[in-house]
Structures are given as C-alpha cells and as structure tokens.
Design a protein around this nucleic acid. Structure first.
Lengths: 343, 343
DNA sequence: TTTGGCACTCTCACGACTCGAGCGCCAACG
DNA sequence: CGTTGGCGCTCGAGTCGTGAGAGTGCCAAA
C-alpha cells in the first residue's frame, strides 16, 4: 500500500532529522520540525502506522523511532530533493583536483581525497582498467645484463611497467628491434586485444620466423599477463570512524573490516559502471555481509561509450544523500572533463 | 644509581609479562614468573625501590605496577635478549617478499604488509629517494598535440613519469631529438645533480644554441621540479587498533591521528638512515606530541655507502622488541638483497 | 635479610533506585 | 471522524551503595 501524503511528510521529516543527529526521533520533535501543524499525539498515530508498514523501527519502547533501510530506499527513490552543489564547493573541488597535475594516477588519488574531505565519509575511486586502454608504444630499458625494464605506454598517458629477467646476452640493440617489431604489431589495439592476439602470434612466429621475435613476444607475455584486477583507491577511513554510530568499539572494528574487503567494494562499484548511471546501495541490498549499516553512492566517469571507472562514497546508512549525490556526480563530471584532455 | 642484579631480574620479569598482557603486574605474579625464588613480600620491597627510581608506575594503589618509558629504555639498552627469527618465519618473509615480483614499488609495499602481518603492528617503509638515483634514460611520448608524457628511467629500474603541456606544434621527431640531447647531457648523473646542472645549462644554451634545446631543458625542469618528498608506505593500521590499549575510544582516535601525520613519521624514520643503524624510539624520546604511548623500531636498507631507505614498525610502547627487532632487521636484509639485483 | 600476616586502599562489577523520554491508549472536543 | 490533551506505562541512562578481589605497605618474627 502506498504512503499517504501525511505519512510521506512525517517520514521525510524523521529521515532528515535522523540523518543529522543519528539519534531516534520522537513524536514531539517531528511535530515541531514538520510543517503539518499537528500535535505530537497525532504524529504518534502516523508514526505507529509507519512502523507497521516497516518504515520505522523502535530500538526500545521509549526511544523514539529510527528509519529502517526501507525508509531510506523510499527516500532515495521518491522523497529526496537533491541539494545542488554550492558554488564555493564547486570551486573547491575544481581547485583541489587540478592541483594534482595531469597524471591520471595523481588526479584519481586527489579525487578520492577530495570526496572524503567534502563528505566526511570514505571516498573511493576505481582507476581505469588497463585492459581497455590502447597500446601506444612499448619501451625496453636494459637495467643490467639479464634484467629488462618494460614500459608500456597506453593511450591517454597511462604507463604499465614491469621488470623482467631475461637471458644475459640480450643487449640494447636487441631490445630496440623487439620494440619496433612489437610496436608495429600491436599499435592501436587494446591491451585486452593484445593479450588475445599474443598466443596466436606466438604460434605463427614459431613456424615461420626466427627465434628473435619469439623472445620479444615472450617478453610481452611475461610482462603483462597478471594485470587484471582494477585498482581501487580508498581514502578517508579515519573520517568514518568519527561518526557517532561507530563510537562503540565493536561497530568500529566492523567498519574497519568492511574497508579491508577491497574486492567486495570493487564488485559493488562495478555495478555502477555496467549500467553507467549513479547507483546507491544501502544496507542489505548488497549481499555483502557486514554492510548492513552502510550506504554507498557511486557513479561512473568517462563517457557512456567509453566508461573509464567509477567514483563513490561509503558511509553510514544515514548519509546526507541529498547533498552528497550531487557532490559525487559533480566530481565525476570534473574527472571526466580532466581525463578528456588526455584522449 | 645502577640497578642491582635482583632489581634487574624483577624489572625484566615485569617487562616481559607486561609486554604479553598489557596489564599492570603484581608482586605475586612476579614471584611466580621470575626464577629468584622469593616470596611476594620480598618482591614487593624490590618493586617499591624500582618505583622510587622511576622504573615502575602504579596507576593506583591496588593495581600492580606497569613499567615506565624509562624501564623500556633500560630493557632495550641492557636487559633484552633478542629472540632470533625462526626458520618458519624467515621462509614466510622470503616467500611473501619474492611474490611481489621485481619492481621496487611492489616489493616495498609487500615489505610493509609483511612486517605488519608478522608483528600485528603498523609496518612502515620509506621508498628510495629519486634524488639519489642515477639518470639512465629519458623518453618522451606524444599523447596528443600539446600533451607530452615524460618518462625518466632511473638506475635500478625506478621510473618517474609526468604529463606536460607543450606547444601544439611539437612533433614526434622533436621529441626524439630532445631525448637524445638530454640523455647525452645527463647520463650517469643523479637526479639531484641534474637539478643542479639544469639552471646552468639553460643559461649556457640560451646564449649559444638554438631555441630547440632550450625547450628540451624546460621540459625536464617542469617535469621534475617538485619531486622532493620521499614516499612513505604505511600498512596495517587496523592491526594496531586491535591492541587492548586502544580499546577505549579516545586512545583509538589518538592512534589514528598519529598515523595521519606522515611527515612526522618520516622525520623519525630519517634518523635511522642518517646513522645507518637500527634505531628504537619510545615514548617522549621523539618530541612528537601524541607519541607518548608508542614505540618505533626502524632500520635502514641498502648499504652503508648507498643507503636506500628504511623499514620500521610502529606500535604501542610495550611491543615485543626482543622478537620484533630481529624481524625488522631480517626484512631489511632481504630487501637489501632483493634490490641489489637491480643495481 | 626474608617471610608470613594483616589491615588498608582502590577498582570493578552488580543491583537498587530515580529520572526522563517517549509511547500507547482513551476519552473528549470541534 | 480526525485531532487533541491527558494519563499511565515502559525502558534506558545515570547515580549511588555495596561487596569482592587484587594488590599494597608495614610490621614482627624467623
């Protein structure tokens, strides 16, 4: 059954108060805060209904009521009026992001930090996957006999580097020839495509061409075989521990353990990239254990045709979504713009 | 006045018990643990003396005694019998470190993690300063008109990269010429020396040679001017919060704030590099506020002639130094050996 | 010099108690 | 019939007192 107008109003009032104070809200408070001009007694009736419908929860008889995850979901889907990002804040985000320079890695780190600073929550950023980026050039440097530094420059200025052990008699000239051969072969393919093509090329070369090219291919294979997990940048873990819901020690430990599960967080952020839109996950909507009391906002950056990565926030379920969703979106848009220069 | 043999024995017993349990130690416990074969009453007398001399501290009348920072200093300087690293543990360290591959950055991160895992404290590593490393080769890649990726390869396989905005009409051939010129000019100088030489070279070129070389120099200057702060890698912050001394919330926050002061931690670790020996700093010996209840073990890696960086542990003052100092030293030695391959 | 004994002190855990917030219910009111 | 004020109830948080336990300090005896 849908909510009546008055129930809606009361629920939103409770939500907004709870988001500010993290404390259960009583009928008196709601009566004062809402613009319904009803007495606490009437509010109590409405609150009782909302409790029955599963939107509110009483920790105990005399403690006021706290919104449930269902209430937050309602808020996000229907009740929330997003609060646009202020000019001051915009300027602040612009400034800090551009202070990081042009390098993707540095910019992303800064983005994560800026997000966590603005929100007092945990900021997260997924870096662009190397696999989707295009091969631009490979360079080899002989560090010492038998040790070669391989540097793969990707479109957009990303760099993948790896040290490789080789046979001792490989010299600088060999490396230059390898480089030329490989650059010719793989230019303008994505790293994923290169990986796919590598095996076939090895077979082809084995039959027709000399040993030399085989070595070159093996070098590349060794260098870039394991580069699969996208990088997750997390910042502001200390922020989150300052919130009152974590003032008790066991909750704090739980929060820390959530932050350690990088792969799970990645999974959640991935969703936002697949669908290329802002996603908010609260409470048990993720099937990630321990995330019950958390909420996560995430949004992709890059373009719909070429999604690059995602940025997001993780915090207690009672985050100020109305304010923070626009902040996350704005950050993503700036990020998109900044990285655009590189492509 | 120096400690008598019996006082020494009692103090060390107290220290070792306190290191294990983090709880003040009573006379009965000492009587049982020590091999003096004295009654609790006699122990009490000795403990009273130690308290007078400043080695022990009573939180309150009936709480047993806890060692002071002075006691720990005594322990470190005179009483401690280092506990050699076990074979199993050695193998474990070897294995995890070599699983990180050959790349310096990855190895150092792994070292920090391994240290924190072995010790259940916070692991710290200072990465080698780029300034001390030798210029091996510079590479330029034109990412798009007006945007150049600069890659400086240093001796040992370290890589410094930076994106630079240039004039739009700079093309690939220009970049190759720039590279040749710069590599010839700076080969086998350290980054610090290059920085010093740059200004002079600019002046020299301004008078005699063409515009082109000037641009090349400016490119390098822009790329590598700001690279000063050595990198500090920290891992295992969650570990430290599990210790009983941080079970109360205000101590926990204090601990977190200590970990955020990266530059201060760096300062402390720097000491160990200057003197090139293992340094243990406890309590107020550093003048760093908030570090009163902490202890830090640090030791350099690399060789005395070419110190590369430092590794260390940060934890509560009652760390198990006897066990952990050898662990830190062993890690540093493995690290030295691994990086040796690169030079 | 060492030891057992004993009185003393202080913390911690537990229970009783009070206070206040908030609720549910109900009767009365417009 | 919705709204309101009132009243009694419940439950948590804080306060106080008490008792147990750990540990000390001191003293007299071995």
């Amino acid at each position: 059954m849908p909510l009546q107008e008055r129930e809606r109003e009361v629920l939103i009032t409770i939500l907004e108060s709870y988001i500010k104070t993290a404390a259960p809200v009583g009928s008196r408070t709601v009566a004062k805060l809402s613009n319904l001009n009803l007495s606490p007694a009437s509010i109590r009736n409405i609150m009782a209904d909302l409790t029955e419908k599963g939107y509110l929860d009483q920790p105990h008889t005399s403690a006021g009521r706290a919104p449930t995850a269902k209430a937050f979901r309602f808020y996000l889907d229907a009740g929330m009026r997003p609060h646009p990002v202020g000019e001051t804040e915009k300027r602040r985000i612009d400034a800090t992001l551009s202070s990081a320079g042009l390098e993707i890695g540095a910019v992303l780190k800064q983005a994560s930090r800026t997000l966590s600073d603005c929100s007092l929550q945990v900021g997260m950023v997924i870096a662009p996957r190397h696999a989707d980026a295009m091969w631009k050039r490979i360079e080899f440097a002989l560090i010492k006999p038998g040790l070669v530094l391989t540097i793969l420059i990707l479109q957009g200025g990303m760099v993948l580097q790896r040290l490789i052990v080789t046979s001792k008699d490989l010299d600088g000239d060999d490396l230059i020839r390898y480089g030329n051969y490989l650059n010719h072969l793989f230019k303008d393919l994505t790293v994923a495509e290169v990986r796919a093509k590598l095996a076939a090329e090895v077979k082809r070369v084995e039959k027709r061409l000399g040993e030399m090219y085989l070595d070159a291919l093996k070098l590349v294979m060794e260098a870039f075989e394991a580069e699969n997990a996208p990088e997750l940048i997390v910042d502001g873990a200390a922020n989150i521990l300052a919130h009152p819901e974590f003032s008790d020690i066991s909750h704090m430990r739980e929060a820390l353990s959530v932050l350690e599960e990088r792969s799970r967080l990645l999974e959640l952020l991935d969703k936002t990239m697949d669908e290329f839109k802002t996603v908010i996950i609260i409470g048990e909507e993720s099937d990630m254990a321990g995330l019950t009391d958390f909420g996560m906002i995430s949004t992709p950056y890059g373009s719909k045709e070429h999604p690059l990565g995602a940025v997001g926030l993780l915090g207690p379920i009672r985050m100020d979504y109305a304010k923070l969703v626009p902040v996350v979106n704005y950050t993503a848009s700036i990020l998109t713009k900044m990285l655009d220069r590189n492509f």
